[in-house]
Amino acid sequence: MLKKSQSSLNLGFSIFILLFLIFLLQLSTKLALIFALSLALGYTLQKSRFCFVAAFRDPLLVGTTKISQAVILLLIISIPAFFLVFQIASNLHLPIELNVTPFGFHTFLGGLLFGTGMVLAGGCASGTLMRVGEGFAMQMIALGGLIIGAFLGNSSLPYILNIFHEFPGVFLPDIMGWVPAISIQLLVLILLWLGIRKWQKSKRT
């Protein structure tokens, strides 16, 4: 199949991005940096076909675990790296906040709905954004649904918090110390990684 080159579109789009970055730099260095990083995130997600939906869905649905193993690798790198950044920032008295959120039964319920929904929509939040960029009509509809659902979630949260008790966020190092918290989490992830690799091999034979 003869493929048309899109190099002129590429040139035009690159100039547009460059101008937009310069514009953002006038507003704030932080916004420009964040925008540049998220462009790289979108680029990487697309090029590596990285997909959290596939990581959760495919082991049971089709029996492939390559993406699940990659997601576990991502977590294994991120846990100690986040710890380092948090410690360095604290030592330098710089403000930093990790994602330690309160939880309750609604965390579980939300995860269940989110997990089911992402399989039906063919993309989670990051995957939906990525596929909108790739031009998929299906995920453009899913993004519309995501916006509607986020509003519904926002409006129902007060009622949900009336039904389910909410516990304050638990930062694992606070209850067991840094070294055990990080070691136990890494151990769980490494065992999971080895386990699914073994499981996949046994499925193939």
């Binding site: 959120t101 309160p102 939300g110 929904g117 939040a125 649904g145 659902g149 986020a150």
Partner: peptide, 23 residues
């Protein structure tokens, strides 16, 4: 399925305070 999946995702993410990236 995209519309309903999207709505379920958006609702679920906001009552749990995060998605696959944030949580």
């Amino acid at each position: 399925s995209a519309l309903f999946g999207g709505i379920m995702m958006g609702f679920g993410a906001r009552i749990a305070y995060g998605c696959n990236i944030g949580l």
